[in-house]
Amino acid sequence: MKFAIVVHGAPYSDQAPLSALSFARAVLAEGHEIYRVFFYQDGVHTGNRAITPPQDEVNIQRLWSELATDNHIELIVCIASALRRGVLDQTEADRYEKSCASLDPAFTISGLGQLIDAGLNADRLVTFGC
């Protein structure tokens, strides 16, 4: 079965990115496919590579990036949500003349059409965070 995962909550402020990560691992462990993970609203902060938690806490951004790289999963952050929250890749940082990019390379900036496409083409769409 093809799953699409949507994350609305911010890392650390909200359990959503970690719950979604556990769900994604379970989906893969059961032999299913992840069509796409779409980070929307405060969920876009999950891609912030500047995240620096204390040493005795997990780095949620890094866990997602590792899962995606190891399993070739597409991690999309919504461009409108990301830009208004200061989550930019190098292209957007250059475009808006910001001094640094903050999005980890395992994540890709794209549009809301990717969320709709995931809803239409995955067998199940599961949302984490309200």
Binding site: H8, Q41, R84, G111, L115, G119, L120
Partner: peptide, 18 residues
């Protein structure tokens, strides 16, 4: 919060596809 506004944005985008 901006959540409601972003929900409407998603609805408008969805209407272009389905």
């Amino acid at each position: 919060s901006v959540k409601a506004q972003e929900g409407l944005d998603a609805l408008l985008m969805g209407s272009a596809f389905a």
